[in-house]
Structure formats: C-alpha cells, structure tokens
C-alpha cells in the first residue's frame, strides 16, 4: 500500500460520505443519477464477489463490504426513502449501451478465462464508464449544487490517484495491470471537463454552471 493508493481509497470513501450527507441534509436526491448509482452496485458486487473465496487483508475486506453496503443503501434512499425527489425524466442515459460493450471487453480482455476473472474485468470496464449517466444528466441540466460537485470531484480524484499508484507499483514491485490501468485512464479522462469547471468555478467560489 502506497500513499497514492491510500489517498485514492480515502477519496472514494469521502465521496460516498459526501453523497450520503447531501441526500440526508437536503432530504433529496435531486441532481443525482439513479442509473449511475445502480451501475456502481453492479460494479461492486461483480468485483467484490471474491470476498467469498479470497482473503487479502482486513482493510481490503472491510472496504469491499463498505462499498457494497453503502451503494445498496444509496439505491434504497433514492428509490424508496426520497423517491419523490428523483426525476427520472432527466436521467435517461441508456445503460445497456454501457453494459453490453463492457461485457464484450471483459470477454476479450481478462487475465484468465473463468467466471470470476471475466466478472472482475467487466467490473473494471463498467466502473470506468458508470459515471456517464451522471455526467449526461449534468450536461442536460447545465448546473449542479455545490455539494454534488464535491461528490463528483472526490469520486473522480479516487481513480486519478490510482494512476500514480500504478506508476509507483511498476517501479517498486514491477507490477503492471494493463486492464486496470487502461480503464483507469479512460475513467479519469471522462472527468477532465468536469474537473476544469470544478477548479475554475466551484473552487473559486462560483456556482457550477456549464456554458449554454
């Protein structure tokens, strides 16, 4: 475990606490894409099924359980508790256009052709693009609450921080994970436009607004 990896995980944890805080304090899931959140549940369950047959560390298992539980809880909040605050008419990204290509990528690119490894690869590709329904929604509304942008920034920073972690691991352990690295670069790339507006507007005290 190096500092980049650890900060990345902390950033991921922080993003979830920020999202929960946003939903609980505003008693609303306005501006949050249900489809993106549902994709994260698929991502975490697909990737962390190895909880049943592989033990890495207490840290690893605890984080996996937290990500599965919190993502399911967020779906519950959105679908049941604060259902009236969710507007499906602006959350329309077709997730099958993400699921199918990710499945194909996983069947082609994996480290071993077995169920668990294909599922792992699928989860890596799907995580890379799972934010698209959310970004699409943001693009449609053209603005976002500050707290929602902090959530997205923390979520984007998580995978961005994994990139120096992979560089570090290459030099210290000789470890290369081409699937995770490729998907991670794609994932971070999808945030670049968002980050630009976040740094030039939100962090300067302005409201997050996209140019019309």
């Amino acid at each position: 475990m190096n500092i980049f990896r650890f900060l990345g995980d902390l950033s991921h944890l922080a993003s979830i606490f920020i999202l929960l805080h946003k939903i609980q304090t505003t008693r609303s899931c306005r501006g949050i894409s249900f489809r993106t959140q549902a994709l994260y549940v698929v991502v975490f369950i697909a990737r962390y099924l190895d909880l049943f047959f592989r033990y890495v560390s207490l840290y690893n298992s605890a984080m996996k359980l937290f990500f599965i539980a919190s993502s399911c809880y967020i779906l519950y909040l959105m679908k049941i508790r604060y259902r009236p605050t969710h507007d499906p008419s602006i959350d329309t990204f077709r997730v099958e256009y993400l699921l199918a290509p990710c499945l194909i990528l996983a069947l082609i690119f994996n480290y071993k052709f077995n169920f668990a490894e294909v599922l792992w690869s699928f989860s890596i590709w799907l995580e890379a693009v799972a934010i698209l329904p959310q970004l699409f929604m943001l693009q449609r509304t053209g603005e976002a609450e500050n707290i929602t942008t902090h959530y997205l920034a923390a979520l984007g920073a998580y995978r961005a921080l994994y990139i120096p972690n992979w560089i570090y691991r290459y030099f210290t352990e000789g470890l290369v994970d081409p699937i995770a690295v490729t998907a991670g670069i794609v994932q971070t790339g999808l945030y670049l436009d968002f980050f630009y507006v976040y740094f030039t507007k939100v962090l300067q005290g302005q409201k997050f607004e996209l140019p019309a």
Binding site: R5, S57, N60, M63, W120, L175, V176, I179, A180
Partner: peptide, 10 residues
C-alpha cells in the same frame, strides 16, 4: 505478473 496480483486493489 500473475493473475492474482491485481486483486489487492479495490
């Protein structure tokens, strides 16, 4: 790298 090595990441 062997196929197990990447599974220590989240």
């Amino acid at each position: 790298s062997d196929s197990e090595a990447h599974h220590d990441e989240l």
